[in-house]
Structures are given as structure tokens and as C-alpha cells.
Nucleic acid binder design. Sequence first.
RNA 1: CUGGCUGUGGCGCAGUUUGGUAGCGCGCUAGAAUGGGGUUCUAGAGGUCGCAGGUUCAAUUCCUGUCAGCCAGACCA
Length: 480
Amino acid sequence: MAKKQKQFVEEITPMETDFAQWYTDVIKKTDMVDYSPVKGFMVIKHYGYAIWENIQAYMDKRFKETGHKNCYFPLLIPESLLQKEAEHVEGFAPEVAWVTHGGDEELAERLCIRPTSETIICAMYSKWLNSYRDLPFMYNQWCNVVRWEKSTRPFLRTSEFLWQEGHTLHETYDEAQSETLQMLNVYKETAENLLAIPVIIGQKTDREKFAGAYATYTMEALMHDGKALQAGTSHNLGQHFTKAFDIEYLDRDGTLKNPYHTSWGVSTRLIGGIIMVHGDNRGLSLPPGIAPIQAVIVPIAAHKGGVNEAAQELYAEMKSLYRMELDDRDQYSPGWKFNEWEMKGVPVRIEIGPRDLEQNQVVLFRRDTLEKEVCPLDQVKERVGLLLEETQKNLLVKAREMRDQKTYTVQDEAEFKRIMKESPGFIKAMWCGDEACEEKIKTETGATIRCIPFEQEKLGDTCPFCNKPADKMVYYAKAY
RNA sequence: CUGGCUGUGGCGCAGUUUGGUAGCGCGCUAGAAUGGGGUUCUAGAGGUCGCAGGUUCAAUUCCUGUCAGCCAGACCA
């Protein structure tokens, strides 16, 4: 038996051995994605897509609660529109896919497949906005975008990905700013409460901000391998786009004004984050909030003494309460199923067999702690609910511990380099504000400033790299 | 984009050095038993070796190109 167990474990490369390989193995084994014939384009299979649907459902509700409505804008954008905002086109042009023909005919103007929709949306907003009374514009869309990436990895960086992008217009800078921060907070709340991923929120440096943004805010999460994942961004775009696209409205005082603009997005990349934050050497461990299957019932010796009937009855009773699966496949042994569902990260397993029926009980198993317990049959519904809640909380606690354990405070350059080399993670350090230092440390260690966090700590008075006065504390990390 | 590696039934691999049109394990199908941590036995089905050229009497094997994937780096919200 020990030998069998070993065989199973070997199917997934241990994360300590090779994290990249572990990730690839988990993605493949758990059947979340498949590679398509086109480089960088992945099929999201049902088990992966269900996670996205759960994220969508939760966030869409939050967006609506905060006053946004959904729209849909076209996939194709004329080149001339993309060109209108100088920084924006410069940032995105290298990774844009172009449509040059319609049928056999070459187009007079080529069309880009949206890498993001600021330009097309602004072009439409300029038609729609007339009066200060029309503001604010509070719209979001769920869609796909394409960026021609040079190297790709499922969920983390794909040439096409699914996301939402919110685009709002406001009368004042302050209003746009508070919208930007409000949505960042919605993201943070989603990451922590739904995905159980703790995040650092803060502002991007000019070097790292969105092409065309006045200011970019981000939430950054730390993965098991010590690399950071930018998990969502919210941009205050100021009037950059509204001026470039002639979006104007007549204000109370009779003058034409440009509104202030925000955009914010999260993508299917979040799924990669879930995998890399909660996964272990058995595979996935999914937060109940987004798990496609929250609890699976595994009948044991199903044909014996009413086991099958009992399992079906339990399933019927529970399926309206939780996302349930009854695994009544008879070609697999219980042990096989246990391993499979653990690999797929199902938070709770309910085992029910002849021995249980005799005693009116079931065995419950928690994926996050790998603990088994016995539960009276008439208490299963409540107990499973409790285990799901506890799992949701525990995953966040464990993720926070992992992150804190890989977060360092550094005052000098040698120490910085040693940590980045030996045990990478978040490094908190003071920053002089000079892009040269940022650039230098990226070249020498591969780490970048992930953000200037809102929660500042005064770690010292000088920048560890140039020794000039520094008044900002920043998080450095190698990034995905 | 650069460097390294890989591509052979659904999956994981061997075979290629010394060319002669494929083999193993798992999975799959059927039957039976088994069933509380990847169950066992028996009998089957399934590939022409990523794709395109070239060399050769003959190419999975040699050569060229190309596509895709993995790993590292560069780039990149």
C-alpha cells in the first residue's frame, strides 16, 4: 500500500524540487486547461472555467452593488483609434494582433483585436456624453482580450485571456480617484474573502504603471515560490484619454470640460494565483468560495446494504445547499477517488460505507488539513457547512503565514541581493524615488518594485542602493 | 526574442547512435471478483512515429525547414 501511495505522489513534481514543473503538472493533471493548436491560446476546460464563473458571479455582484452596469464593446478596434493616446499605443503596439483582411479583401484600415478597451470605449463615450447631468458613467464589461505574448503559461500569461474591465467617467479628479480606490478595495476584498489570497495594495511606480495612466494601483500576492503576482489593477487615467478622444460635457457654468476617467480589471490570471497560493504536493486545494465542487460524496462498496441508496439520499438533500458531486462511478476504487478529488482540490469529502450505515454516520475529510472525522448522519449538512467555512478561513490564514514568512525587511544592498538570490520573497525597503535605482536593482537581481504600499512603515532614512534620502517604503519582488 | 530540452496509440515512455514501415506501462472496452487510501484476473481495441520537404531501393531513425510544448533568461500591467 505504501508503494501505491508513492506512485501517486510521483505524478506531480514536488514544489520544492521545481515549482514551475509542479505548476505545469498540476494544471495538466487536474484537467483545468488544454493547449490549443495556436501558441499561447489555451482551452479552459470545465473544471477551470467553473472557477472563473464563481469568481465572476461574486465580483459581478460587487460591481453592481457599487453602482456599475454591464455593457459589451466590440472586439475589433480601428488602428486610428488605438493611435490616439500616445503613451497607450506605445505601450501596447508591440503586442497587438491585427486583422488585415475581410474575406479576400484587404481592409483599407487594419483593425486590432483589443488588448484592452480604453480606446474603443472612449470613442463611444465621446458620442454619449453631453452634459454634467450624464455623469458619472459607470460601466463594466466581461470579455476576452488578446496580447501577442512571447512566452506564455496557462492562466498566468496567455495570449488570449478572459477578464473584466470597468471604465468610468467622473466630473472631478477626486471622484475619479475615490472610484479608483473603491474598486481596488473591491478587488482586495474579493482576493481575501473569496480566493483566500492575502494581498498588498498600493501604487505602482511610474516605471510599472499602465500605459496612459495618471496613476496605477495594484494588489500584489505572493506565491509559494516567493514570486509576486500582480493580481489586479485599478487606474486613475486622469484626463489623458478623455482629452485625446475629445470626450467633453457642458458643465453647470456653461463651459466645455473633459471628465476624469478610471479603468480597472482582473483576469483569469487569478486562477493561476489560486493554484500557486493554496496548492501543495497533492495538487490543488481550492477555497470553498470558488470550488466547482465544494463537497464530494464517495460511496464505499456501493452495492452493499443500501449504501448506494443512502449516498443518493444524502446527495439529494445536500445539493441545494452546496455545490455537490456524488461520485458513483463503479470503475474506480474508493482509494483512487480519494486521491483524485484531493488532487482536484475539493474542500470536503464525505465517505459513506457499510460500516458507517451500521452506526448512522459518515466520515468527513478536509482537504486543507487532511484531517478525517466521524459525523452522525443527521448532522452532516450542518457540519459540512461549518467545515467549508473553516476551510475558507484557514486557507487565508495559511496563505498569510506563508507570505509573512517570505517577507523581509532590508536596509542594505548586500542583504537585499543575498535574500533575492537565496530565498526570494517580498522585500520591504526604503526607496529614494529615483527610477535609476529601480532599474539598477532589476538588472542586478531581477526584482522590481511591486508597489508603494498604502500602509507605510518608516524603515530608515535612506535608499539602500544609493544612500540618498528616502521617504517611501516599497515592496520589491521578482514577478510573474 | 535568445539559449537548452522535447514531440512515437488517450497519458507517460523505450526504440533512432550502426535506416529495413513500431514496443512497454498506465488508461480504454468486455466479463468476473473486489471495494474504508490509486484492487485483481482473463480476453480485446487502439499508432504508423508533430508537419513539410530532401537524401536513399527503403526514413520513426540521416539532413533542412517549420509548428507546438517545457525549462531558464530578455520583454511585458
